[in-house]
Write a protein that binds this DNA or RNA. Sequence first.
DNA 1: ACAATACTTAGCCAAATGGCTAATCAAATA
DNA 2: TATTTGATTAGCCATTTGGCTAAGTATTGT
Lengths: 114, 114
Amino acid sequence: MANQINSQLDNVFFALSHPTRRQMLDRLIDSDLSVTDISRGYNNAGPTISKHLRVMESAGLIQRTKRGRVHWVKLNPKPLKGVGDWMGQYKKFWDISLSSLDTYLKKISTKKRK
Amino acid sequence: MANQINSQLDNVFFALSHPTRRQMLDRLIDSDLSVTDISRGYNNAGPTISKHLRVMESAGLIQRTKRGRVHWVKLNPKPLKGVGDWMGQYKKFWDISLSSLDTYLKKISTKKRK
DNA sequence: ACAATACTTAGCCAAATGGCTAATCAAATA
DNA sequence: TATTTGATTAGCCATTTGGCTAAGTATTGT
């Protein structure tokens, strides 16, 4: 139970500890991407990219769907909730997060008013 | 510059990827602790604890002060701000899709309608 | 049918990680 | 002064990581 969650957190934090993997995730915010799309811009060989993807997959941060020979990769942000929860303990220290949520809420309600 | 920040983030995420280290940080929320205090409850040998502490220190997550032969360890939450900032990009996903904000927005709009 | 494309697997390598014991350093105490 | 206590450094070991190349599996195009 708590241990399961914990080791999942391990995987998530570990996945996020490599700049290439973080950047890949960042790219996936806007749209799903093929593996070729994702690997664009890195000097890494294919298998290296593959390994990075597997790391993120076992952390639950991405999901794949094969369509034809193309593997489509989709961000799964759910595990980040765990990070956020863990971080919550520390919010009282850096406490910016509340204000950024605030800003976000304001933006939302503005849009709705149109 | 951005690379400095990035590699700092690498270190922070990596430091957080081990359950022992996360738990150590958690303990430091309430009070500063000596190294002996921190190591209480783990089956690890001294040097192993030492290594964990060094990992967190190079991530900037803790600071040490020697007083006598006791090394006091203090939480430094500042690097977590970087994590929070990075997470900010993803808030729109898990805040909304994972209930709390959704519920919140509903509550808000209900109130407004009154 | 054959060649090109999109990926993954297998397997190698150097470096880093997480654990240990033994030895060392520094400070407090008997 | 001699010894215990708090903690680190040195160095060993097995495993994991992040990179590679070569080879294999599907699927698509010619």
